[in-house]
């Protein structure tokens, strides 16, 4: 798939036709006759130092995709290439070197930190697992990490409950960059935080990216936040990417009817701009039994007969990749 970013450098991550189907067990015998097609044929690339924003409603599979890339799940089919090496089917020890390079920041900063460990223990653990350094050098590095994310050094002996949500997210970020990764999967890193804290964390993420040349896969449902931080944005709907382009272009010239309604639904903090929105009706259908043809067709304001029968393929319209049958996008 061609990328809108200049193809000078080799992509750090290349995902091709990735599928993640979870078996759904039913009946007395718990036979898996159906599957939840959470991610169903997704391809994209991320360049070094680039942020790809991934936007979609809950249940569209964006978190599952993130977890596949961090190899917390083993995908059903397709491939994930990290710096040219296929890591899709690696297991156990063979994955260890990639774990250093691909790290993850989770949504809920309370649940993702072990409440019985001190901050020092939490931040030291990646080095112990990867067998890096001795006690003294690890302690020095932990202090450095706290410094980088803007927490006082005395936090080392404290426990997660002693920190606020924003501070805990800083700890989660410190842990994710401990091993100098090249790619960080950020799964809704600011959704659980208050508005005034969100901007602090976003600034930190942007600063870290510049300093360490990190690539981000930034998953979120808040489009304004995603646009702020992303170089390119992919819009997901029910296990598929329906549109991909640069942040500016997605917002100013959305092509796919779903992207249009998604952008139109964002409340704008300006009381002078109360415009009538294009509201799409209905909910996201179940990924266990997705609609035929184009998966968006039951909610699409411009649905045609063809959409019900035939699934559209991603095609290039101007500088967008769009997955839609309409001619006048």
């Amino acid at each position: 798939m061609p990328s809108s970013v200049s193809p000078k450098s080799a992509p750090i991550l290349k995902v091709t036709d990735l599928k993640m189907h979870f078996p759904v067990k039913e009946g007395i015998l718990l036979r898996a006759n159906k599957s939840n097609k959470a991610v169903d044929g997704i391809s994209f690339e991320i360049q070094p130092g680039e942020t790809l924003g991934l936007v979609g409603e809950s249940g569209c599979g964006k978190s599952t995709l993130g977890r596949c890339i961090a190899r917390l799940y083993e995908p059903t089919s397709g491939s994930i290439e990290f710096e040219g090496n296929d890591i899709t089917k690696l297991k156990g020890r063979a994955l260890m070197p990639y774990r250093q390079n691909i790290q993850m920041i989770f949504q809920d900063p309370m649940e993702s930190l072990n409440s019985r460990h001190t901050i020092g223990d939490i931040l030291e653990e990646p080095y112990i697992v990867q067998k890096i350094g001795d006690k003294a050098s690890r302690a020095k590095r932990v202090r450095e990490l706290l410094n980088i994310v803007g927490l006082p050094t005395r936090s080392i002996t404290r426990y997660p409950f002693e920190f606020s949500g924003g501070q805990r997210q800083r700890i989660g970020i410190a842990r994710s960059i401990a091993l100098n990764p090249k790619l960080v999967v950020c799964d809704e890193p600011v959704s659980a935080l208050d508005v005034s804290i969100q901007s602090q964390i976003l600034n930190l993420l942007v600063d870290l990216q510049k300093e360490f040349n990190l690539a981000y896969l930034f998953i979120a449902h808040d489009l304004a936040v995603v646009k702020h931080i992303s170089d390119r944005i992919a819009i997901m709907y029910l296990g598929n990417i329906v549109e991909e382009s640069t942040g500016e272009s997605i917002y100013h010239e959305p092509r796919h009817p779903y992207t249009k309604s998604l952008i139109s639904a964002i409340p704008i903090p300006d009381p002078h701009r109360r415009v009538k929105r294009e509201i799409i009706s209905g909910d996201v259908p179940s990924p266990i039994n997705p609609p035929s043809g184009c998966r968006f067709h039951p909610r699409c304001p411009r649905v045609m007969e063809r959409c019900k029968l035939e699934a559209p393929l991603l095609r290039t319209v101007a500088d967008h990749q769009v997955c839609c049958h309409l001619d006048d996008l």
Partner: peptide, 15 residues
């Protein structure tokens, strides 16, 4: 402090 659709890309947000 809230990023809006017109905030400059990757600019430092006021906090």
């Amino acid at each position: 402090s809230i990023p809006t659709l017109s905030t400059a890309h990757k600019s430092t947000l006021s906090v």
